[in-house]
Design a protein around this nucleic acid. Structure first.
Lengths: 221, 221, 221, 221
DNA sequence: AATGAATGAGTTTTCATTCAT
DNA sequence: TATGAATGAAAACTCATTCAT
């Protein structure tokens, strides 16, 4: 099937596809280099050399170095958003679903090296950039909103305590999700991604206290 | 005693003292500027101008821009270490003492703007730097060790669960301690430092689950 | 004759004609852009985009950016030469005929925006270019010669004073003909093209005319 | 005299003087190069090399290439303004005084190569620049106003014809004053500066002078 | 000690020109 | 023929660092 005119649509797509692949390759390479050396220490020339193209070609795809970074961040936020969306619509407890997000984040550290590296590092470092680019800001808000909705659901269903304000939950969750410092445990092999997920999840959902129940300072009452 | 030549040693000290004050002033100014604009966007010239001295004078105190940053980071780690040491030797539960550290960190965000800003941002950004500078690395390890000892104490006294590995506790604690994203809540006035401390402490020590007790997945048993 | 194969020669001509039309369109567009933004600020890409073709196609017609400029200048000099030739062969006084040239120049400022804009601006700016390109230089000389012949005619017939050397007359005439600064008066509506022609003509001819004679170097006394 | 403390005031001036001399040297060199090759074809590197300093040093004195050009133009306009002012306050007919300005302009072509080159060339080419820089625009207006006042004086005293509008006189005068094309006559030795002055003056004044009156538009008959 | 002029390596960006398709 | 992706030379500008005064 679909043997009628298989050439025409692709014809258009060919150049287009090549262009997109080029752009994607540049983004991937830039991502690797930025993680290695940081934004300022990485020159466009270096990115081009690593890709095996010339400086000018990079500018054929991204109007400026900042634009390249923006595209990279946006791509990764979008990917993360897709993950969150997929997870949200799955069945299971809120905790289980959040664990899936954690697992994905920690699991990808060693393989793809992406979300984790960009969400915190770049969001922290280029908070300025995100503020400048309205669409980035909007996407970040979107991510936060989705995660917030998950927590709200948990509070409604009685799974989560209404004690801790949702915004703090979201910020804390994302903070730990993207905590760069966990990387050492994974790369050193000290803990596996699964162990890390379990520990962080336990921390967040059950706390560190032995009889993690009991009143704790008559907390929040 | 030592009243024989009261002038000479002081005389030396005077110069010395002045030198150190100069250096301290430069560090303070650099700290402010680095927080404002970041390492790469801040030039030596700018720092000098803000201090009211010339570029060359900065180099009389710090051999390079990187050295200046190193000194700054070291200073702040040392200050943080002093805080940790002070807190550790105080009486009270582990949780109470860790809350004091949290309180200090979150409280200083608006006033001095230091530890929090530098520990994560710069430590994250200049992880490279810390790896390069042995003494920085050593000091960071020292801080981690102190906090680890506190957690170990908690586990020994039965206050803390032995379930979560101490290294993860330390990393998580420091991660939340220096989570830049909390800043928005403080600057917007949405939450006070105290509320933030309470929430984070609750999260860590009691978790988010409603009946934060019970076995969760059977673990902890 | 030549009615045997009516298609082939025209066929050639057709392609040829199309080619020439293309080239002419490029030149026209380039002219507009160069006037708007200047030679250096106008890129080949921009010209191509405005024409609606691709960069490469421009190079099919002009070997280099400089060649494009050369062709443009030459075209305009040729057009100007045609005007001069036409005017020269007309009846009337020298003054009347030169006024026609002035009228054409000042009149075209607002409509076509050509001779005036290019002759001075580009000739001044690219004096280098004209010196480099022998044929341009030759054409400029040709224009000067024609105008010189007109002045000589005037001197012979007694209409013009032999006092002022013809080369100076020519240079002055062309200078005022292409004086960019007059443009302001036209665009602001302060003076019409006709008024400008009258004023310039008066300035030049009441000065150059034999009758205006009398003293000099003592005149006005 | 003045032998009291000859050092102190100069002390300040020393560095200052050196700075200014440097800047002046750069300006002079830039002027020469810009005339030779034009603004776009002259790189900062080239200017620096010609002066015998490094690129960076140029930027120590001028914040940008455009700023350098602006300073150059301003300097020359100011110099020209000074000349005009000096001439205006001298005794003599308007014509005689304007001739002094012409003489200065044409005379300096071969020696210093300045006013002439910049007033038209750059004013024409960087009309944009002058519009952008308010102070340049103001100075140009000032020059025009002074010269206009001279013509007005001539009209009042009856030396000049009220027929030609003053603005046109000013523009025409400046146009011929800075007519680049005259340069060929001077450099080729075909005419001396004095002859050029005489010819231009004759052209303009025998035309503008009241006495030159008679017919017009029918004269010569 | 302090200054600030001088340097030049390094970076981003542009754009004329080429060439495979 | 027409296209437009690719190139790389060239240029403006910055800034850490040095050093003569």
């Amino acid at each position: 099937m679909d043997n009628t005119q298989p050439t025409h649509p692709p014809k258009h797509s060919l150049k287009q596809r090549q262009r997109e692949e080029r752009a994607a390759l540049i983004l991937r390479t830039a991502n690797a280099l930025l993680i290695e050396k940081g934004y300022y220490a990485t020159s466009i020339d270096e990115i081009a050399a690593r890709v095996g193209i010339s400086k000018g070609t990079v500018y054929l795809h991204f109007a400026s170095k900042e634009d390249l970074l923006t595209a990279l961040i946006e791509q990764q936020i979008v990917e993360f958003l897709a993950l969150v969306d997929a997870v949200i619509s799955q069945p299971g407890t809120v905790r289980a679903r959040l664990e899936r997000i954690l697992a994905q984040a920690y699991g990808s550290i060693q393989t793809e090296r992406r979300l984790l590296a960009e969400l915190p590092d770049t969001i922290t470092l280029t908070k300025t950039l995100i503020q400048k680019r309205a669409n980035l800001s909007a996407r970040v808000d979107e991510v936060m909103a989705r995660i917030a909705s998950l927590f709200e659901e948990g509070k409604r269903t009685g799974e989560l305590s209404p004690t801790v304000p949702t915004p703090l939950m979201v910020t804390t969750f994302i903070g730990l999700l993207s905590l760069n410092d966990y990387e050492q445990f994974l790369t050193s092999g000290q803990y596996s991604a699964d162990e890390l997920v379990a520990a962080v999840s336990h921390t967040l959902f059950a706390g560190w206290a032995v009889a993690s129940s009991m009143g704790e300072k008559g907390e929040i009452s």
